[in-house]
Nucleic acid binder design. Structure first.
Lengths: 179, 179
DNA sequence: GCTGACATGTAACCCGTTACATGATTTT
DNA sequence: AAAATCATGTAACGGGTTACATGTCAGC
């Protein structure tokens, strides 16, 4: 009965600045995509739910011609919901399923080459992720004066450390298998 | 349209040795719980699906008194499905949602104490995970002569490296916030 | 006139967990 | 006699993705 986190992301992002649904998607893509995602199928309906629950407000509808853009902002009530969640203890039960590791666990069934290929492709993926972090770092630089910034850097660093550890692991495994 | 991984875990585990549904649960708990989980609601129905697809076979039903235990084993067909999957390239798109990091991203909204508490509780959780790895290492020692063993150690090491990186990160963040 | 970004949304589907149901057997 | 573990399952629910639907606007 995992509670719906989508509404919390929305509230969180709107606590930074008023945004439209589309803005939220872009914001996520530029900043937290390395540990969070939202799909349209969740985003837009949730936006409307939050609106009817008065946790967010519809600031204005911009219309240039007939192109519509809904700009939302967080309400006082929304803020208190957000703050309550932030102070809540996160239950860390959720284990995240890792398909590569699962395959590796059964790798005795296949040739060493298959296994090596798995590791190399993971290595490559991790390297791409590292590059992604560079991009994100660039993207959020424009917020470097914001009080949010230091926390965002924390997040980035987390991804960085994880990726480095992963890379080291891939290489060690590959070395051990090729000896 | 994420394909059902449950059946692959089952096939994988049965490729090691014949097991009952309950055995599978225990096996997971003793070996791969750090990166995989299965619930009853998935396990038992999938077992029956695999059976009717002839990817696994019902070896025998043990009855001591009226306590029933179904022992399954993998068929040739099941083996080839397993091997095909192992050789398949894993699409690494799946980002795993991290609620702590999400909270941290919005931490400007709350007092530094709340943020510190978040980090400390994460640190504690990671330490517990490290202890878990010790347990798992003990539990799988009985397989140390098996050709599977080296891969299992790889997996364990992955978790270990991840946890160490996480721990370092937690501590750095805490230090930076308490200065 | 076409492509690609802008912009919002819905419907179907599936994966997975939770909670419940049932009953035997072993241990305390 | 109670509690824990063994053992298999089902029903309901909900979260989340995919794919589709619709239409505008800017630039080439």
């Amino acid at each position: 009965m995992e509670k719906q986190k989508t509404k919390l992301v929305i509230l969180g992002l709107l606590s930074i600045e008023p945004l439209s649904g589309y803005d939220i998607k872009k914001f996520i893509a530029r900043s937290i995509r390395h540990f969070w995602s939202e799909s349209n199928g969740q985003l837009y309906p949730t936006l409307n739910t939050l609106l009817s629950n008065k946790l967010i407000a519809l600031d204005r509808i911009e219309q240039k011609g007939k192109k519509v853009s809904h700009l939302y902002s967080i309400t006082e009530e929304g803020r208190s919901v957000l703050e309550r969640w932030l102070a809540e203890k996160t239950e860390g039960k959720k284990i995240h399923r890792d398909e590569d590791l699962l395959k590796l666990f059964f790798c005795k069934n296949v040739s060493p080459d298959v296994c090596l290929e798995l590791l190399r492709s993971r290595e490559k993926r991790v390297q791409e992720k590292l590059e992604e972090f560079q991009e994100i770092q660039e993207d959020i630089k424009k917020y470097s004066d914001s009080p949010h910034y230091r926390f965002w850097i924390f997040n980035l660093k987390n991804g960085l450390y994880q990726a480095e550890a992963e890379l080291r692991w891939c290489r060690e495994c590959i070395r051990e298998l090729t000896q």
